[in-house]
Each structure stands twice: as C-alpha cells, then as structure tokens.
Computed example of a mutant assay.
Amino acid sequence: MQYRINPKNGDEISVLAFGCMRFKRDEKETEQQIIKAIEMGVNYFDTAYIYPGSEATLGRILSKGYRDKVKIATKLPPYLVKKKEDFDKIFHTQLERLKTDYIDYYLIHMLPNLDVWQRMISLGIEEWIEEKKAKGLIRNIGFSYHGGQEEFVKIVDAYPWEFCMLQYNYYDEFNQASKNGLLYAADKGLPIMIMEPLRGGKLVNLPKEALQVFDESEEKHSPAEWSFRWLWNHPQILTVLSGMNSQEMLQANVASACLAQADIITDKEKELYKRVKDVLNRSFLVPCTGCAYCIPCPHGVDIPMCFTCYNETAVTRKISARFNYIVRTAGHNSSKCVGCGLCEKHCPQSIAIRKELKAVTASLESFPYKPMAAFMNRFMKH
C-alpha cells in the first residue's frame, strides 16, 4: 500500500480509501472485507449519517480492536439541521453508532452552494465546530461537494477548511468542481479526497470501442486500473474512495494502490484517455466536455451541470438524474435560460446550447419536478 502525507496534520493516509456507502446485507462478509482491507493497509474509512446502517456496522466492526488503526470520516447532512440543537443530536448519534469518542475527518455533507453554508452559519455551526475541535471530538473539518466550479470556489473561501472531498475522474476532469477547482483547493493547502473514481461503474463497464483504445497501450490495465492510475497521477489528491463490496475487488484495488505514483502518466497515455472520453461523449445526449467556457451565464444557468445531469438520464434512472439535477442546479436550472445565445459564442464543441437547454427543461423539469424541487428546497434551507 502506498501512503500520502496530509500536509495539514502529517497523517499518513492510504491512497486507497474504503467507501462505506453500500455495505452488503451479510455483516459477517462485510466484517471480513473491512478487516482484510485494514490488514492490507487501507486506513481511511468513509461513511455518513444518511447511509443506511453504515455507521453502526462500521462501528461494531472497528470496535473489535481496529479503531486505533484507522481514520474514520463521516458526514453531517445540512438539510436535516433545522435548529442549533440538531448539530449535537446528529453528532452524538454518530458517535454512538460508530462506538468512538472522536471523529478523525468530519464533513459537511454534499454542500450544494454557499447559501446552504451561510444558513448553517446563522445556526451557529462555526462556534459548534470550534467547541468540538477544542474538546478533541472532531480532529479535522471539511466538506463534500457535487456542484459546479463557481460555487465550489466560493465554499472553499468561506471557511478555514482542513480538507474537502469532490467527485473527480478522467471523464469528469472538466465537470463539477473540475480540475480548476481541484487545483484551487490544493493551492489553498487543502488535502483532497476523491469520490466517484469510477463514475458509478460507468468507467468500468466501458463500450467495446473504448476498451479497444486502451488496448493500444503497451501497458495492460483493467478499466478500473486505468481510472485509479489517472487519479493517483495527481499529487494534489490525498486518497481515492472505492466502495469495495467483494474480496476480488478489494484485492484488485489494493494491488493497483501498491503501484500508485504521481506524475507517471505519459503523453501517449494522456492521448488514450482523451480518445476514451471522446467515445463516452458520443454515448451521451449532449457532447458537453464540461470545459465551462459557456459560463458565467448572465441569467445564472449552470450550463455544464445542467448537461451533466441530462446526460445521466442516458445511463441511470430518471428519478436519480432528476434528484441530482435539483440538488446540483438549485437556483441555476435550465429553465432560467432566456435564449440570449451568448453562451454559444464561446462553446468549443459548437453545441446548440439554447436548444439543448430546452431539452433539459423538458426532460428534467417535467412533473414531478416542481413539487420535488419545492420539497428539497424547504428541506435544505429550513
């Protein structure tokens, strides 16, 4: 196992982290996997308050003599915080579930925009964090993020964070927070944890044409290895989460992690990644690369994020894509487009953005978008 040093506190963190969002129903099997992962050098385990049964399962397993061998990361869901007392209510529940008296890496879960963070501030979260850190109950404070680049930068600048977690992979290099966001956070000294390295499995189950591109390389790797190698090539990345639900997957990912190095991807390999992305783009509804040349929109539309969510409808359930759309584009959705056309002048892909935004609106803002959005907005803000 390779390790990287957290520049904020000197922690040695395994480059491969265990994502605990979806444990198997058989807790004995899950226990075997977690213990095996620890024995193989994995020392960072990521869970969350809202992952069903995850915190309690992880707590029971680690309480059998493994707690001091690992770093636990878990998350506070801001949409469940309605009053100041909810901070302690949620946090103490998490400590009980995890059978621990401190959290190594605590995240504000899925901050969608600066407005939600400011609401948390109005409820006293800054003082609450200071109190918990002073008592040693929280060792490091950070946030996870799924939105666009502009809001990401605002959130990074809004508080003296000690780390952050974002979705990043070779396909999403220019989507969501993007490479620019990653570099911005790194320049601010933030350790960066990566989620969705395989884009929910899409980068494992590649089209035949994409597999043929990777086969041109002299070095042979599985699709998952290609994805992890690309991420570990970034020296700014501290660790990469993987939801490993089989011993075979664990073994394969650890083997890749043992070879993890920064700055080893060759120019020829970079060209292969680019060609694979081109193949994947052709499988999507809109060939948007997420370069963000089309923004800022004078009317507030987050164009790249709208297209990202729209493209998800081709590979996932509509309800999931609509939920992501509501959360990620809150206040910046496609129907805000007035058809001015300014964005199209800057699009290097020559996308008919106005036409495609209408398609996004028709697909993702049809019923039951409005009641879902109203419910989510109330849930997030109050």
Score class of each variant (00 low, 15 high):
residue 224 A to E: 03
residue 208 K to W: 02
residue 170 Y to Q: 09
residue 212 Q to C: 06
residue 245 N to A: 15
residue 153 V to E: 06
residue 162 E to K: 02
residue 188 K to M: 07
residue 192 I to A: 11
residue 287 P to F: 02
residue 187 D to I: 01
residue 274 K to M: 07
residue 175 N to V: 08
residue 240 V to F: 00
residue 221 H to L: 13
residue 172 D to L: 02
residue 188 K to W: 12
residue 221 H to M: 14
residue 280 L to Y: 05
residue 200 G to F: 15
residue 184 Y to V: 04
residue 260 A to D: 06
residue 255 A to N: 14
residue 186 A to V: 03
residue 200 G to P: 08
residue 259 L to Y: 03
residue 264 I to F: 11
residue 210 A to P: 08
residue 291 C to N: 01
residue 160 P to H: 10
residue 273 Y to D: 07
residue 206 L to A: 05
residue 179 K to V: 11
residue 193 M to Y: 09
residue 267 D to I: 13
residue 229 R to C: 04
residue 161 W to H: 01
residue 258 C to Q: 15
residue 197 P to Q: 03
residue 149 Q to N: 13
residue 240 V to P: 09
residue 265 I to E: 06
residue 236 Q to E: 15
residue 188 K to E: 01
residue 258 C to H: 13
residue 288 C to A: 08
residue 271 E to M: 13
residue 180 N to Q: 09
residue 288 C to P: 10
residue 155 I to L: 02
residue 175 N to E: 09
residue 237 I to P: 11
residue 154 K to M: 08
residue 286 V to G: 06
residue 247 Q to E: 13
residue 253 N to G: 00
residue 150 E to Y: 11
residue 244 M to T: 14
residue 232 W to T: 14
residue 151 E to K: 01
residue 180 N to T: 00
residue 191 P to V: 00
residue 254 V to M: 08
residue 170 Y to K: 10
residue 233 N to T: 14
residue 180 N to H: 10
residue 280 L to P: 06
residue 225 E to K: 09
residue 165 M to T: 12
residue 168 Y to K: 02
residue 217 S to N: 14
residue 192 I to P: 08
residue 242 S to T: 12
residue 220 K to Q: 14
residue 206 L to G: 03
residue 227 S to K: 05
residue 289 T to I: 00
residue 256 S to D: 05
residue 214 F to K: 05
residue 208 K to R: 14
residue 197 P to I: 00
residue 172 D to H: 01
residue 242 S to H: 13
residue 158 A to N: 12
residue 152 F to L: 00
residue 146 H to E: 11
residue 199 R to I: 04
residue 226 W to R: 02
residue 269 E to P: 12
residue 175 N to I: 06
residue 147 G to I: 12
residue 156 V to H: 09
residue 192 I to S: 10
residue 174 F to L: 14
residue 206 L to F: 03
residue 267 D to V: 10
residue 202 K to D: 03
residue 228 F to L: 07
residue 226 W to E: 03
residue 182 L to T: 13
residue 196 E to K: 05
residue 195 M to V: 05
residue 177 A to Q: 13
residue 193 M to D: 01
residue 242 S to P: 08
residue 243 G to N: 14
residue 171 Y to G: 01
residue 219 E to V: 14
residue 148 G to C: 13
residue 194 I to N: 04
residue 177 A to I: 05
residue 162 E to S: 07
residue 288 C to G: 01
residue 286 V to H: 02
residue 168 Y to R: 05
residue 259 L to F: 00
residue 239 T to G: 07
residue 279 V to E: 00
residue 268 K to Y: 11
residue 206 L to H: 08
residue 286 V to Y: 04
residue 273 Y to W: 13
residue 247 Q to L: 15
residue 156 V to Y: 10
residue 228 F to A: 04
residue 209 E to K: 14
residue 251 Q to S: 15
residue 287 P to T: 11
residue 154 K to I: 01
residue 270 K to I: 09
residue 178 S to Q: 06
residue 283 S to R: 14
residue 269 E to I: 08
residue 148 G to A: 15
residue 258 C to D: 15
residue 220 K to M: 07
residue 275 R to S: 07
residue 187 D to H: 06
residue 209 E to Q: 14
residue 203 L to M: 01
residue 229 R to N: 15
residue 260 A to L: 10
residue 252 A to L: 10
residue 263 D to I: 03
residue 235 P to L: 06
residue 178 S to P: 15
residue 241 L to Y: 00
residue 253 N to Q: 12
residue 254 V to T: 15
